[in-house]
Amino acid sequence: MGFKLLSKLLVYLTASIMAIASPLAFSVDSSGEYPTVSEIPVGEVRLYQIADGVWSHIATQSFDGAVYPSNGLIVRDGDELLLIDTAWGAKNTAALLAEIEKQIGLPVTRAVSTHFHDDRVGGVDVLRAAGVATYASPSTRRLAEVEGNEIPTHSLEGLSSSGDAVRFGPVELFYPGAAHSTDNLIVYVPSASVLYGGCAIYELSRTSAGNVADADLAEWPTSIERIQQHYPEAQFVIPGHGLPGGLDLLKHTTNVVKAHTNRSVVE
């Protein structure tokens, strides 16, 4: 069995187990497998329904001669939608809004960016022009300005110390501490036991640490421990890039980060 097929099978099995364990909360999309990078042309966006009122959005972007996937989250909030992270750029984010209108038909009224990198804030200006209120932590807003990236308009308070959590509509926002970046936030959907790890969490097929220019490698494993301790009931975990899975993604990420750190020390 090929690795790609095995990865998709694991996603399907995880979703099936969740649907059985929580039949009222989960209505997993039966329309197909989780979209992969090879299936999404740059400039297009796919939506994948995880649970009743919960979707991931998947886009792709060219970077350094390669094409990478990027995940975000959409959560229903009454007759409105909360968006977590842009679709990595203005063109993708405009396509995301169009796809949401086509498939869901509810307005996106608020959006949260989970850290300051372009795959999370690139497209904020498109959201703002569409009347979406954009939010991020003060740290993310400051770092985005320093980096020359787009800056969300509103500040999220109460997320300055490791372990801080605040309720934001249908989700809980959690600051686990520094990891992929010093400002990275985690998003949890309690009604569906869905954990969105953003770039602080890796997919299972990833074996290298990737972009760690703004990471705190020493603190990252401790931050992941905080996530595990705060959300032990999480059933569906979405990484910032690639295929979702279960809580095993947290341990896998820790292993990859520690291996990278150990290699760096040896070198």
Results as ranks from 00 to 15, higher is better:
Gln235Cys: 02
Asp79Thr: 10
Glu80Met: 05
Leu24Val: 12
Gln103Cys: 09
Leu73His: 00
Thr86Glu: 01
Pro244Thr: 05
Leu159Trp: 05
Ala95Asp: 06
Ile50Trp: 13
Glu39Ile: 11
Arg76His: 15
Leu5Ser: 14
Ala90Tyr: 04
Thr182Ser: 09
Val112Asn: 01
Gly122Trp: 05
Leu82Tyr: 05
Asp119Thr: 00
Gly148Cys: 12
Tyr135Thr: 04
Asn92Met: 04
Ala200Ser: 05
Gln229Cys: 09
Pro69Phe: 15
Asn184Asp: 03
Leu159Gln: 02
Gly32Ala: 09
Asp125Pro: 11
Thr134Arg: 01
Pro138Asn: 15
Val42Gln: 11
Tyr12His: 03
Ser139Tyr: 06
Val171Met: 15
Tyr12Pro: 15
Ala66Trp: 14
Asp85Lys: 01
Val45Met: 15
Arg120Gln: 10
Leu185Cys: 03
Gly210Lys: 11
Glu44Lys: 04
Met1Ile: 11
Arg141Met: 14
Asp77Leu: 07
Phe116Asn: 13
Tyr48Cys: 08
Ile20Glu: 12
His241Met: 01
Ala179Trp: 01
Thr253Asp: 01
Glu233Asn: 05
Gly122Ala: 06
Tyr202Ala: 09
Ala25Phe: 02
Ser27Asn: 02
Leu106Glu: 13
Ser16Arg: 15
Ser193Ile: 04
Leu9Pro: 08
Ala21Phe: 07
Glu147His: 08
Ile224Gln: 09
Thr14Cys: 07
Leu243Lys: 06
Ile50Glu: 10
Glu219Thr: 06
Ala94Gln: 08
Gly163Leu: 06
Val212Cys: 06
Val42Tyr: 04
Ala133Val: 06
Pro152Asp: 09
Glu267Pro: 14
Thr36Ala: 05
Ala94Thr: 05
Pro69Asn: 15
Gly72Trp: 00
Glu219Asn: 02
Leu73Cys: 13
Leu47Val: 08
Leu249Ala: 13
Ile224Leu: 10
His115Phe: 00
Met18Cys: 02
Leu6Trp: 06
Thr134Ile: 04
Ala15Asp: 07
Val112Leu: 14
Arg142Leu: 14
Asn71His: 04
Arg226Lys: 12
Pro23Cys: 10
Asp118Pro: 07
Lys8Thr: 06
His115Arg: 00
Thr60Leu: 14
Leu13Trp: 06
Ala95Gln: 11
Gly197Ala: 06
Val212Ser: 13
Ser113Ala: 15
Leu24Gln: 08
Gly122Phe: 02
Ser7Lys: 13
Gly197Trp: 00
Gly72Pro: 00
Gly240Gln: 01
Val28Arg: 07
Thr134Glu: 11
Arg226Leu: 09
Asn71Ala: 14
Ser62Pro: 07
Ser181Gln: 00
Ser137Trp: 10
Thr153Pro: 06
Ile50Gln: 10
Gly123Pro: 01
Val124Gly: 04
Arg128Gly: 08
Thr86Asp: 01
Gly78Gln: 08
Ala25Ile: 15
Asp118Leu: 08
Glu172Thr: 11
Thr222Gly: 09
Phe174Cys: 10
Ala90His: 07
Val194Ser: 08
Arg46Gln: 11
